[in-house]
Computed example of a mutant assay.
Amino acid sequence: MPPAPGAYASYIAVGDSFTEGVGDPGPDGAFLGWADRLAALLADRQARAGGGFRYANLAVRGRLLDRIVAEQVPRAVELAPDLVTFCAGGNDILRPGSDPDAIARRFEAAVAELSAAVGTVLVCTGFDTRGVPVLRHLRGRIATYTAHVRAIADQYDCPVLDLWSLRAVQDPRAWGEDRLHLSPDGHARVALRAAQVLGLEVGGEGEPAWPPLIRKAPAQVRRDNIHWAREYLVPWIGRRLRGESSGDHVLPKRPELLPLEKSAS
């Protein structure tokens, strides 16, 4: 029997920088991110119902799908929580010449493995990148992969965190200075949407309205673009040329399925 809406006593987050929470720094120096924020909402729901809650976050920035499947999926299967969020494939799509059909086949095999061991597997679509300058040219490839993810979710009865249609992240303030990762406000809005998908009562539509956007003068836009290229684009290209990843020496921030002691904020 499936749990009551929002009733999950254990949760493991699987993925890359998006799920690790890059762009959303916490008070202790580690990243928070939408998955930690979702875990806090789930833990609060369990506490109100008189139950406990355990959480692990295995995600590591820069991870490609195959490495996520090799390192994180078996651990999630072994621990068999009530809920797994599985968001992967975005870094593969960024690679020149990547094939979204082939990536989706490997994604589906992992979903099948997780679904056989886990109560609920929530999957994520890609973002609609029409408003993200550094990713706009990948929109067609991301759309193809997103269509596959939705079809896989239908086949395995997975709830879907549909980032493509989430209006809240189509505002530039949802993205951090690097233009590749969400800002704290962006992560918070994704967490609310994920909670809504899982049946939690979060109020409204899960997409708090942004205040009116103050447009920058063209000269300031040019200065911002120069700063972004120097601080983020050039180092990113350098890592690609050297075959390095931002997560080469990073370990999962919460590798064990342990009680969540305090809420993310």
Rank of each mutant, 00 (worst) to 15 (best):
S183N: 07
G204D: 04
W34S: 09
Y232S: 10
A217Y: 05
L182C: 07
C158I: 03
G119T: 12
A104F: 06
A217W: 09
R130N: 00
L213W: 12
R179T: 05
Q155E: 15
R223C: 00
D92C: 12
D16P: 14
D101E: 14
W210K: 05
G23H: 01
D24M: 06
G21D: 07
L258F: 04
L241P: 03
L182E: 06
M1L: 12
P2K: 05
D66C: 15
N91P: 10
P133E: 01
G26D: 04
L32M: 06
R139K: 09
D36C: 09
V169A: 03
S246K: 07
D157Y: 00
T120L: 01
I152D: 00
D185L: 00
D154S: 12
V202R: 04
L163Y: 11
E78M: 08
G62W: 11
D99L: 02
D24L: 09
G51R: 14
T125F: 10
T146P: 08
P2H: 04
P255I: 13
A194L: 07
P218V: 02
F107L: 10
P25V: 09
H227E: 15
R67L: 09
A102H: 11
R139E: 01
A117S: 15
W34C: 11
G15R: 13
I93P: 07
K253A: 14
A194N: 01
S10F: 13
R37E: 11
I93Q: 11
P212N: 09
P218Y: 06
R193Y: 06
S245Y: 05
K216G: 01
C158W: 02
Y232E: 09
I226Y: 04
L64V: 14
P252N: 14
R189I: 03
A102Q: 13
A188K: 06
F107T: 00
L163P: 10
T144F: 02
Y8T: 08
A80F: 08
V77A: 15
G176A: 14
E231K: 12
E231D: 13
L32D: 10
E205P: 02
L58G: 14
R240N: 11
R67C: 06
A143E: 08
A191E: 10
V190H: 01
A40Q: 05
W228N: 03
W34R: 04
E201K: 14
R215Q: 14
D44S: 11
R167E: 15
G140M: 05
L260E: 00
V73N: 08
A174M: 05
A217K: 08
C158E: 07
D128I: 02
